[in-house]
Deep mutational scan, measured.
Amino acid sequence: PVYLSVKADNSMFIGNDPVTDETMITALNALTEGKKDTTIFFRADKTVDYETLMKVMDTLHQAGYLKIGLVG
């Protein structure tokens, strides 16, 4: 499974590897070998604001990742 996490300080990680807004999709493409039907499990600290969550989800959708599971 692929886990994308947003921490309380808005830092992002794919698994244990830090990513930025600019590198997130490139890292996901490498990890999933470009398979856009891969489910991305998205988790965020409860203090992360809604705007940040939606920005990340919008970026995922624009890149073609449509299977996003929200996890606690």
Results as ranks from 00 to 15, higher is better:
31 L>E: 03
23 T>R: 04
60 L>Q: 00
61 H>V: 11
34 G>Q: 04
11 S>K: 14
15 G>L: 04
42 F>T: 03
70 L>A: 06
33 E>R: 09
43 R>Y: 15
44 A>D: 02
1 P>I: 14
20 T>E: 06
7 K>N: 15
18 P>Y: 08
24 M>S: 02
51 E>K: 12
52 T>P: 02
25 I>A: 04
29 N>M: 08
62 Q>H: 09
34 G>K: 03
53 L>Y: 08
61 H>F: 11
6 V>Q: 02
71 V>M: 10
72 G>N: 12
43 R>F: 15
29 N>V: 08
70 L>P: 05
2 V>L: 08
22 E>Q: 10
36 K>M: 07
54 M>R: 15
44 A>T: 09
71 V>I: 13
68 I>K: 01
23 T>Y: 07
21 D>C: 10
53 L>R: 08
31 L>C: 05
72 G>P: 12
56 V>H: 05
31 L>R: 09
5 S>Y: 14
50 Y>D: 09
51 E>M: 12
33 E>Y: 07
19 V>F: 03
28 L>I: 14
52 T>E: 05
13 F>H: 06
47 T>M: 12
20 T>R: 05
25 I>E: 04
26 T>R: 08
11 S>N: 08
27 A>M: 14
13 F>D: 02
21 D>S: 11
57 M>H: 04
58 D>A: 11
68 I>D: 02
67 K>A: 09
35 K>E: 07
51 E>R: 10
43 R>V: 13
28 L>K: 01
36 K>T: 08
4 L>S: 00
24 M>F: 10
54 M>P: 00
60 L>S: 00
2 V>T: 03
28 L>Y: 00
67 K>Q: 12
53 L>C: 07
15 G>F: 07
46 K>Y: 10
67 K>V: 13
35 K>C: 06
27 A>Q: 12
63 A>F: 05
21 D>V: 15
57 M>N: 02
40 I>Y: 01
30 A>Q: 12
27 A>I: 15
27 A>S: 08
29 N>F: 08
42 F>Y: 03
46 K>E: 14
63 A>M: 04
21 D>P: 15
26 T>C: 06
38 T>W: 05
42 F>H: 00
31 L>A: 13
9 D>E: 04
72 G>S: 13
5 S>E: 12
58 D>G: 11
66 L>F: 14
71 V>D: 08
55 K>R: 13
51 E>P: 07
53 L>M: 10
29 N>P: 00
72 G>K: 08
40 I>V: 06
24 M>A: 02
45 D>K: 02
49 D>A: 15
56 V>W: 06
56 V>Q: 02
61 H>Q: 10
17 D>M: 14
38 T>R: 07
61 H>N: 12
9 D>V: 06
44 A>K: 04
68 I>G: 03
64 G>Q: 02
61 H>W: 09
69 G>V: 15
1 P>Q: 11
54 M>W: 10
38 T>S: 07
31 L>H: 09
37 D>F: 05
39 T>S: 08
32 T>E: 01
41 F>C: 11
22 E>F: 07
66 L>A: 05
5 S>L: 13
52 T>F: 14
17 D>G: 05
31 L>N: 04
28 L>H: 00
64 G>L: 02
18 P>D: 03
14 I>L: 14
17 D>A: 12
40 I>W: 00
63 A>I: 03
45 D>I: 02
70 L>G: 04
29 N>D: 13
57 M>Q: 05
60 L>N: 00
15 G>S: 04
38 T>H: 06
69 G>H: 14
32 T>Y: 04
51 E>L: 12
54 M>K: 14
65 Y>K: 00
57 M>I: 12
50 Y>T: 10
49 D>F: 06
39 T>M: 15
32 T>P: 01
39 T>G: 04
49 D>S: 14
29 N>L: 09
25 I>T: 04
59 T>Y: 08
30 A>T: 10
53 L>N: 02
59 T>I: 15
43 R>P: 01
1 P>A: 12
68 I>S: 03
5 S>M: 10
28 L>S: 00
66 L>D: 09
4 L>C: 03
53 L>F: 10
6 V>R: 03
14 I>S: 01
48 V>R: 02
2 V>E: 01
72 G>T: 14
62 Q>P: 00
12 M>A: 02
12 M>E: 01
65 Y>F: 09
12 M>Q: 02
19 V>N: 01
13 F>M: 10
42 F>Q: 00
64 G>E: 02
39 T>D: 07
35 K>W: 06
28 L>E: 00
7 K>Y: 15
72 G>C: 10
38 T>I: 13
49 D>C: 09
71 V>Q: 10
32 T>G: 02
36 K>Q: 07
67 K>Y: 11
13 F>S: 07
69 G>F: 14
38 T>Q: 08
8 A>M: 08
46 K>Q: 13
34 G>H: 08
39 T>Q: 15
63 A>V: 04
17 D>L: 14
14 I>V: 13
35 K>T: 05
12 M>P: 01
27 A>W: 10
8 A>G: 13
67 K>D: 10
18 P>R: 15
72 G>R: 08
48 V>N: 03
14 I>F: 06
21 D>K: 13
4 L>F: 09
70 L>M: 14
14 I>P: 00
20 T>D: 10
40 I>R: 00
50 Y>I: 12
45 D>R: 01
41 F>S: 04
42 F>I: 15
61 H>A: 13
9 D>C: 05
8 A>H: 11
28 L>W: 01
39 T>I: 11
9 D>L: 05
4 L>N: 00
55 K>M: 09
14 I>Q: 01
5 S>A: 08
33 E>M: 14
63 A>W: 05
72 G>I: 15
64 G>I: 01
7 K>I: 10
68 I>N: 02
20 T>P: 02
51 E>Y: 11
15 G>Q: 08
21 D>I: 15
42 F>V: 15
10 N>W: 06
35 K>N: 14
21 D>R: 15
21 D>N: 15
8 A>V: 05
34 G>R: 04
18 P>K: 12
66 L>E: 08
10 N>M: 14
44 A>F: 10
59 T>C: 08
64 G>K: 02
23 T>M: 07
22 E>P: 03
23 T>P: 01
36 K>C: 04
12 M>W: 07
70 L>R: 03
